Simulated assay, not measured.
Amino acid sequence: MTTTAVHSHGAVVRQPVHFDDLDAMGILHNSRYAVLVERAIVIWWTERGVSFSGGRPTTPDAFNVVRDYQITFHRPVRGTGEVEIRFWLDRMGTTSADYAFQVTSADGATVHAEGRRVNIRLDPATMRPAPWTDHGRAVAAALLRA
């Protein structure tokens, strides 16, 4: 892993850090990083028509779960304000999507944390892994690292 912010590929979504996201020391609580990453990825996909509406997926690719999540913390986020969530796909498998991400300062100068997460597309009837659709792959292509 690197402590230099990625500016060359993937997506960047700003997320607010609220007072209730902070721990007793006034820094972003470790559990909130996963929430911020989740929200950023969901926002990006929703803007491209892949989401849930009325409790149902708008496309089959919206029905997916996190299988693996890893994070390394470098520098604490101190106080409220905005951070940037930078994320991209290292690999798009048949049923999996391997994301990498960074949580950076709003100006992208400081990497607070970085990690990876693997999402698996599921068949809603069987709850077993299912292939991503051609549409989902086409949308995800914008996130793939060259």
Rank of each mutant, 00 (worst) to 15 (best):
F87P: 11
I85P: 09
R86G: 04
H112F: 06
R86D: 03
I120R: 04
M92D: 05
T94V: 11
E84P: 04
S96K: 03
V111W: 11
R78F: 10
V103Q: 00
L89T: 04
F101M: 05
T80K: 07
V83I: 13
V103T: 11
F87W: 10
E82M: 11
R117W: 14
F87E: 03
T110M: 09
D90T: 11
W88D: 03
M92Y: 05
G81D: 01
Y99A: 08
F87Q: 06
T94Q: 13
F101I: 06
F87G: 12
T110R: 06
V118G: 02
W88Q: 02
A97H: 05
R91W: 11
E84C: 14
M92Q: 14
V118Y: 08
T104L: 07
A109W: 01
L89Y: 08
H112Y: 06
H112I: 07
V111N: 05
D90V: 04
E114N: 14
T95P: 03
I120V: 15
F87M: 11
E82Y: 12
R91E: 15
A100T: 08
L89P: 01
V83P: 09
E84N: 14
V111T: 05
S96T: 09
V111P: 06
I120L: 13
L89Q: 06
D90K: 14
A113Q: 10
H112S: 11
A97L: 12
T94G: 14
R78L: 13
M92L: 15
I120Y: 08
E84Q: 15
N119Q: 15
Y99C: 06
R91L: 10
A97N: 04
D98I: 08
A109K: 04
G81K: 00
R86P: 05
Q102N: 03
G79L: 02
A106H: 03
F101Y: 14
M92I: 15
R121E: 09
E82H: 12
T80I: 13
E114H: 15
A106R: 08
W88I: 06
G115A: 13
S105R: 09
V83Y: 09
R117G: 14
G108M: 00
A100W: 00
V103K: 01
V118W: 08
E114G: 14
F101N: 09
R78H: 12
A113G: 08
